[in-house]
Amino acid sequence: MRNTWIICRRELSAYFTSPVAYVFIVIFLALAGGLTFFFGNWLERGQADLQVFFIYHPYLYLFLIPAVGMRLWAEERKSGTMEFLMTLPISTGQAVIGKFVAAWIFAGIALLLTFPIWVTVNFLGNPDNGVIVTAYVGSWLMAGGFLALSASVSALTKNQVVAFVLAAVLGFVFLMSGVEIVQAFFRAWAPPKFVDSVAELSFLTNFGDLSQGVIDVRDILFFASVIGVALFINTAIVEIKKSA
């Protein structure tokens, strides 16, 4: 636990010593705001909620979260620091979790910085703040899901660009698994039961309820399991890659 926290702290400070962090936060805030106002017509709708704010988060994360996660292991492998890190008295699991949590906290900070929109909606009307908090938590959980996928993929390669593209593609599959484009791919060869369960893996479906303030334990469990399984695979990949 202590080691995980030490790794996490170092990773977090690594984010903020590079310009990437600030670029990411600015772009995330600009896009989140822009989409809400111009595509979601938030003001014109005249409703005191953040529905149209949260509805774009899955698509924002699809491209922005791989940018946060791509460096986690690829950079470590490229610069050789993986050898330095993994010969310190820490376990692979601690390193994997520490790095993931750092990136997740970073994503959380970016998400929290959208607070002006929450202030605005409270200024303009009387929104159900419980719904908004649930949606924020749901959004952060979903970010964690994307991030865990990105982190595992990042361990596969030394090249951050490859890590980014792979993570975006994998994220797309999870995001859209309920949508025809992904369903058609599986329906061609897999049994119907399997195709249905693929649909269940959709980030979109599972985020849908949370973003409307419906706390369904299954949705929370879903994102928690995606994170858990992805990090487990991440640990295995790191173990394999460092031995080869």
């Binding site: 400070s13 690594a14 050789g80 330095f84 820490i90």
Partner: peptide
């Protein structure tokens, strides 16, 4: 690993630190 001090080949270190 606790008992060993190790300088890996090429002395890889976190450049941002």
């Amino acid at each position: 690993k606790r008992r060993i001090g190790y300088l890996p080949e090429g002395a890889p270190l976190y450049g941002d630190m």
